[in-house]
């Protein structure tokens, strides 16, 4: 068993981390390349200040709360805190980072880690319930949306159970293996699912840049479809 754990924690983790890193880098490079080569000078004309302020307004979305979206927005906000803080700053993970990347990060206290993990799990369940129970969310939700929530839930749940022997129904090493493998599956999924928003969200917010349309493109599209003498 220890071998399996070592394999999962060592080479397998390195591999999944690399795939995630390369996959996300590809997204970012394609976006930057598209913007620089296609938009060029027009990037300067975009309302950058407005883009920045609207992006920042979502960092703590108190200005975006209203009754009909209160539960969903709150759950989502708290979820994002747990989903970023726990994987990076949990004491056991900090040790892992230091061995793996050579960086030493401050570690979360045990109580804070437990609280954040439990909160994250509850938030995922709330988000699942939201998708199941509100007609508007049901209309939008596809199987993959539940799949992504499941992918996030398992590592948090298994990590929590592994850290709490009294609650853990499985042998510790099994639970830990499940934890590591499910976390690695999540890392692998990030660039290939909507989780890619971890790096793409700033680019999603650039619609004002994309309103800076390409001069002459309209004529070229019309000519390509209907010839040079295209009429309205």
């Amino acid at each position: 068993m220890e071998h399996w754990l070592e394999l999962a924690r060592g080479p397998l983790f390195a591999f999944t981390f690399l795939v995630m890193g390369l996959g996300l880098a590809r997204h970012v490079l394609l976006q930057v390349h598209g913007l620089v080569t296609r938009k060029g000078q027009r990037l300067r004309q975009a309302p950058w200040r407005r883009i920045a302020s609207s992006t920042l307004s979502w960092a703590v979305p108190v200005g975006h709360l209203d009754r009909s979206t209160l539960v969903m927005t709150t759950a989502s906000f708290l979820f994002h805190i747990g989903a970023v803080v726990v994987p990076v700053f949990l004491a056991a993970h900090v040790a892992l980072w230091s061995g793996f990347l050579g960086v030493s990060l401050p570690a979360l206290g045990e109580g804070a880690a437990d609280l954040l993990t439990a909160l994250t799990i509850v938030c995922v369940l709330v988000l699942v319930a939201y998708r199941l129970m509100t007609p508007r969310a049901r209309a939008l939700t596809r199987a993959s949306d539940y799949g992504v929530l499941g992918l996030v839930l398992v590592p948090f749940l298994s990590g929590f159970l592994a850290a709490h022997p009294t609650l853990n129904p499985l042998p510790w090493s099994w639970m830990m293996l499940l934890h590591i493998l499910s976390a690695e599956l999540l890392l692998l999924a990030i660039p290939f699912t909507k989780l890619a928003h971890v790096v793409l969200f700033p680019f999603d917010r650039l619609s004002e840049v994309h309103w800076q349309l390409r001069p002459g493109a309209g004529d070229r599209v019309a000519a390509a479809l209907y010839g040079e003498e295209a009429h309205v």
Binding site: G34, R38, H197, H210, A217
Partner: peptide, 22 residues
């Protein structure tokens, strides 16, 4: 797609739209 600049934006939206319903 060939003559305009929409591709990058569509790629970004396609890869990250969370469909949250807000």
């Amino acid at each position: 797609l060939h003559f305009t600049d929409y591709k990058a934006l569509l790629d970004s939206y396609c890869a990250s739209s969370a469909k949250c319903g807000r």
